[in-house]
């Protein structure tokens, strides 16, 4: 069953637009939503959650139209957009006391178990929590109201490597039973290599790819060779870099032609992001 389906989402700003953003996430999987800063990740997540007025498109959560059933569907969604940056001078217990009233499925036992597991001190103010603890507090709230879909905007941003690794392990643990799904945006591609099942890559408001991690990587190849061979094969490159020794460029695997003077290797996610960003800069 599809946990989240986004179809043809459009949003126009003066200097930026989301263009036909389309992807879907099945239940029980983790999807990484990647793109460079300003690519449209947060705008897409806000559009999904009806926080901004869209110019077109549809969002379905668990098969139901989100705009028509927002109140009911939000009961099953846990979010974290830009960290816990509200009521930062209030104690955790005060915030929890307010939040729990909004959710019909709130379970105090679940809340207390995660509170103990994450060592959350309820007498601490939000501002006294580290970035990692803020993410854990957000997840605790979401888990306590039995959220099935987690939408997290850059949850690993600002965390140290250990905290990041712990969090990614937790993500994997959460989806283990196949009932929960996670969509999280990031520009740290190593996070995705560790735990994402699917990857949706957005660049300049357009979805470039949305597929399994393996399919995404297999769709591209890094080609390296001499400057002379570049002249012969440069046309289908997404973008390329040159230096005194030759060139390296990103190409779609389907466009790859055999040539005696080149070497071909699989890219990593960072390569794909960098070469697409380079193409945008060239177009500008």
């Amino acid at each position: 069953m599809s946990a989240l389906t986004v179809k043809g989402l459009n949003k126009k700003y003066e200097k930026f637009e989301l263009k036909d953003v389309t992807f879907h996430l099945d239940e029980g999987y983790i999807m990484g939503f990647i793109g460079s800063n300003g690519a449209g990740k947060t705008t897409t997540l806000k559009a999904i959650l009806n926080m901004i007025q869209i110019n077109g498109g549809e969002v379905h959560v668990f098969g139901q139209d989100f705009s028509q059933n927002e109140m009911i569907l939000k009961q099953d969604i846990g979010y974290m957009l830009g960290g816990v940056d509200f009521y930062i001078k209030k104690k955790i217990k005060t915030i929890t006391d307010v939040v729990k009233r909004f959710y019909t499925n709130w379970d105090d036992d679940v809340y207390n178990s995660y509170k103990e597991r994450f060592n959350l001190d309820e007498d601490k103010k939000i501002s006294e929590l580290s970035d990692g603890m803020k993410v854990k507090y957000s997840l605790t709230l979401a888990l306590s109201h039995n959220a099935k879909l987690f939408i997290l905007d850059e949850p690993t941003s600002g965390l140290d490597p250990v905290a990041r690794d712990n969090l990614l392990e937790l993500f994997q643990e959460l989806v283990e039973d196949g009932k929960r799904s996670i969509l999280f945006s990031t520009h740290i591609t190593s996070d995705l290599e560790k735990c994402a099942d699917y990857i949706t890559y957005i660049n300049n408001g357009e979805i470039i790819e949305s597929s399994t991690k393996e399919d995404l990587i297999n769709s591209y190849r890094i080609v390296k060779g001499s400057l002379k061979s570049l002249q012969e094969i440069k046309e289908p490159f997404i973008s390329y870099k040159t230096n005194a020794f030759g060139f390296s460029g990103l190409i779609r695997t389907d466009d790859l032609k055999t040539h005696e003077d080149i070497s071909v290797e699989a890219p990593n996610l960072e390569d794909i992001m960098i070469y697409y960003a380079k193409r945008e800069n060239k177009d500008d």
Partner: peptide
């Protein structure tokens, strides 16, 4: 306190 962001995330 960023109240609007907090409120819109609630199921309301």
């Amino acid at each position: 306190q960023n109240d609007v962001s907090f409120s819109v995330l609630m199921p309301v």
